[in-house]
Design a protein around this nucleic acid. Structure first.
Lengths: 213, 213
DNA sequence: GCTATTAAGAGAAAAAATTAACAAGCTATT
DNA sequence: AATAGCTTGTTAATTTTTTCTCTTAATAGC
């Protein structure tokens, strides 16, 4: 690992993608996969795949390929998702509710251990209607207290846009380590709190650009 | 525009981001913005901002900066969102419901004109409870017919993962032009149907990597 | 056990993207 | 009308990322 000083951001994005594809391969009971196969599934170059892995170690067997299960484990370790990450969701509208019952999180060791809203009582019927309430909805004024008590490291913002920055500030104040903002309004955090904004419209913008050009 | 033969994919991603930030500036009633200001807000280099725009034309005034409104218009035109894009959402669970009432789409000229589910009757109460039903939920067997009748160009998949590929195939069969897959399972489409997979866990994976390293 | 085949890993080369530097152009002021 | 002060657009330099080529290692068949 001392061999490489800096790992491309794009490599990290691809690792996450490889992981998903390997999950699919595992489902299909494939034991080994060559870089060429992975490349094909993920729409990248085979040399790219090998190089991406090479940043972190030697995970393959020459002449054979990569052991799917083992490679998954390695990637999870690289990404840091080989342990549980405790998450709070703030803003339990439709989007927040969707996350609370989102099974895929668990596969990746993400666990939603708290949910907040300005009107907890409003929410209850809404969620439980279809899936049962997976976690109690708390009033957002308890945010700081509960983040600490439950060792929460990541906050997901699913409020309306006009509340997003305020909630981000609260999360920062609660000593959260990272924030994923799913509201359509970009938020800012101080240097020490990692942030990802994920906008649906951006994904559509991108799609539409390539549809138009 | 003949000056540049190929535009970086990253530039397109950033354009979408600039657009969001410009929207914010507009809200704050800022009339002009320098590349340095935009760069600061979007966490990129000022030269990058200017270069990104330069691929497509000269939108600024030397000594002054960029007119916010005008620049927004230009970017929208570049991305192809200066006209209405008609969208179908397939799978009206929590996530699908969230999209149906997602106000931000309209700002970007995205209009959801159809919604499909395997059990339309199951859905009705679920959505209308909080926002009123914005669009009738149809049985998914009517997909092809309705996509054609309503001139739908984009499909968004919000089904459970095990249905995602099947729905993608249906959308392709219905002559859809582009697909945004929000289900956690990657899908594939033929060359001529543009595809974007958007995974929540990938955003978290990325966040967690930088939290861990 | 040897050989042919396959596929990873390493390093070099090529391509692409970002950043820096600067000339050109606009505005305001005197 | 000339000049000073900014900020863009552009070219050049640098850095980063991707791709190619070649070497090495493992496996399977004979």
């Amino acid at each position: 690992m001392a061999k490489y000083s800096k790992i491309p951001e794009a490599t990290i994005r691809r690792l996450s993608n490889y992981l998903k594809c390997l999950g699919d391969l595992e489902t299909k009971n494939e034991k080994v996969a060559s870089s060429a196969l992975i490349a094909n599934i993920c729409n990248v170059n085979a040399a790219q795949v090998r190089k991406d892995f090479a940043y972190f170690g030697e995970f393959g067997i020459r002449g054979m390929g990569y052991n799917v299960k083992e490679l998954k484990r390695h990637i999870k370790e690289i990404l840091g998702i080989n342990r549980e990450w405790r998450i709070a969701v703030v803003g339990i509208g439709n989007m927040g509710s969707a996350l609370l019952v989102y099974k895929d999180f668990l596969k990746q060791n993400y666990k939603i251990v708290a949910a907040f809203d300005v009107q907890p009582e409003r929410v209850i019927g809404h969620i439980s209607e279809r899936v049962g309430r997976p976690v109690e909805i708390l009033h957002v004024e308890r945010l700081k207290e509960v983040v600490k008590a439950r060792n929460i490291e990541i906050g997901i913002i699913t409020t309306p846009p006009q509340e997003a920055q305020k909630v981000a500030d609260w999360l920062v104040d609660a000593n959260i380590k990272g924030i994923l903002n799913l509201s359509p309004s970009p938020v800012r955090t101080p240097e020490h709190v990692k942030l990802r904004n994920l906008f649906f419209t951006s994904a559509l913008d991108n799609l539409v650009y390539y549809l138009s050009n």
